[in-house]
């Protein structure tokens, strides 16, 4: 274990304290503690089936934590449900069924906002990162290419100008050029003060943008650290077959 668990000087943006959750009789996340600092990009890695997605679902309240606490800016948000978190400035880009396939790009983006008042401003913001969206607002999300869909997912998560952005495996199956555009967008958001927690398997992507990392195994944090010259070797040791 390492520096990631030490208490930082400032209040953590997001803190998990001994969180346990799962489905039915199965506990996927077991007594997990983690802190994400304000303004950083934190990368959570680990092999399939180790509980990364379950952890994100627990954080946003889709899945109730069975034990432990989840703190956002020091305030307890455990079991408050997704709406409460969205209202507090959290946005989540899920991996499974992340888009309304049969709705237009515009409607997908629109649904991220509580009302249409801020729509124009939100759209302007995301056009800055992904200009192609502007010309294709009426197109159905399901007809976009894989890479375009991923960019739409990120764009939608950015619509509300969130303070904390949770992103699940956005790089999966993407071409390097698309990954670069997404990485640039995320770096811009960080520069604006947004805290970002990414779940990733793509090591190169992580090394390029993250500040700190952790590897999950069987529902717990197995190893963690700040991104540095030794990160690649250490993480690969955990990820090999």
């Amino acid at each position: 274990m390492s520096e990631v668990l030490e208490t930082p000087v400032t209040t953590a943006k997001l803190a998990l304290e001994g969180v346990t959750s799962g489905y039915g009789h199965v506990e996927i996340i077991k007594d997990l503690s983690l802190e994400v600092r304000p303004g950083e990009i934190f990368a959570l890695m680990g092999k399939n089936g180790m509980g990364k997605t379950t952890l994100l679902k627990t954080i946003v309240g889709l899945l109730p934590a069975r034990r432990g606490r989840i703190l956002l800016d020091g305030a307890d948000v455990t079991k408050r449900g997704p709406k409460a978190l969205v209202d507090r400035g959290v946005a989540y880009a899920p991996q499974e069924q992340p888009l309304f396939q049969d709705l237009s790009i515009r409607d997908n983006l629109r649904l991220a906002l509580p009302s249409d008042k801020a729509l124009a401003a939100g759209l302007e913001r995301v056009y800055g990162h992904f200009p192609f969206l502007a010309d294709r607002l009426a197109q159905k999300a399901g007809t976009l290419s894989g890479g375009e869909q991923k960019m739409l997912i990120i764009a939608r998560a950015m619509m509300t100008e969130p303070d904390l952005l949770l992103i699940d495996e956005i790089s999966e199956g993407l071409q390097p050029t698309v990954i670069e555009r997404i990485a640039a967008a995320l770096k811009d958001e960080r520069a604006n003060g947004t805290t970002i927690l990414i779940v990733e398997q793509h090591l190169a992507f992580v090394l390029g943008i993250a500040d700190r990392w952790a590897v999950m195994k069987l529902g717990q944090i197995d190893d963690a650290g700040a991104i540095g010259p030794d990160t690649e070797a250490r993480v690969l040791e955990h990820l090999r077959l």
């Binding site: 090591l203 190169a204 690969l236 090999r240």
Partner: peptide, 17 residues
């Protein structure tokens, strides 16, 4: 063979597309 295959290494470190 599987453990040492290049493609497998690539898949499991996030690349492989």
């Amino acid at each position: 063979e599987a453990v040492n295959a290049d493609i497998v290494k690539r898949i499991y470190s996030g690349g492989g597309h």
